[in-house]
């Protein structure tokens, strides 16, 4: 049953899936990496020094884009109600969706980080730190995104609000993940991973409770 749920969620969220717009966050991410050198000028040193941070900010903003379709569509269509009638808990449904959401945007984002790093002229070590940081941080971004998407799903204009709400909640991941760029050692990445794990553990319960409260409301 978990496999069935995951397959449906992936079909909905993956690029080229029926949800549509799966490639959009990716293009957005690359577009930011492309625009940044135009904006600050061709100072290679400056680009190499700040590029890692720009990639992080772009990744964070790109993670906001898919939130609109993450929960509200199924809520309106009554999918969660039908699953509830079948005794499938909201927590499980949300845990599966978290996994699907991460799978649908993070691996491609990591892949797109390579051309982005090229565009900004990052060296090998920095690129590695950015990639490791994103690998540690994206599960947390996905978790925050899903929790906020579920909390705002029933609101009018919920998608715009979700975008705004994700940003402050994602700040800790950004601080440690991007912070690893300016410090030596992998302590920052480890902390970003720890925050990610914590968020991933909490999110299915937050999102599940949000869906139940909409149902009862």
């Amino acid at each position: 049953m978990i496999g069935t749920l995951l397959r449906r969620d992936l079909g909905l969220l993956l690029p080229g899936g029926r949800g549509g717009g799966g490639v959009l966050p990716l293009l957005f991410f690359l577009a930011v990496a492309m625009l940044y050198p135009f904006a600050v000028g061709p100072d290679a040193q400056l680009l190499a020094r700040t590029g890692g941070g720009v990639i992080w900010v772009a990744a964070l903003l790109a993670a906001i884009l898919p939130l609109e379709k993450l929960v509200s569509g199924d809520l309106e269509a009554g999918v969660f109600d039908q699953l509830h009638l079948r005794g499938i808990s909201e927590e499980l449904v949300m845990a599966v969706r978290l996994l699907a959401h991460w799978l649908a945007f993070a691996p491609l984002l990591l892949l797109a980080t390579l051309p982005a790093a090229g565009l900004l002229g990052l060296d090998g070590t920095t690129t590695r730190t950015v990639l490791l940081g994103l690998l540690a941080g994206t599960p947390g971004l996905a978790a925050v995104g899903l929790a906020v998407a579920a909390l705002t799903a029933a609101l009018r204009g919920g998608a715009a609000l979700a975008g705004l709400m994700v940003i402050p909640l994602a700040v800790p991941i950004l601080i440690f993940g991007a912070g690893a760029l300016s410090t030596t050692g992998d302590g920052g990445i480890a902390l970003a991973a720890a925050i990610s794990l914590g968020l991933c553990a909490v999110t299915p319960f937050v999102a599940g409770a949000a869906i139940r409260s909409v149902r009862e409301g």
Binding site: R8, G11, L12, R18, G19, G20, E76, A77, G78, V79, D81, Q82, L85, R86, G87
Partner: peptide, 16 residues
């Protein structure tokens, strides 16, 4: 016993 509900919401993916 298990229940099945049919209401005004279809719960079928519109694009499939």
């Amino acid at each position: 016993g298990t229940m099945g509900l049919v209401d005004e919401r279809l719960a079928l993916d519109a694009n499939l």
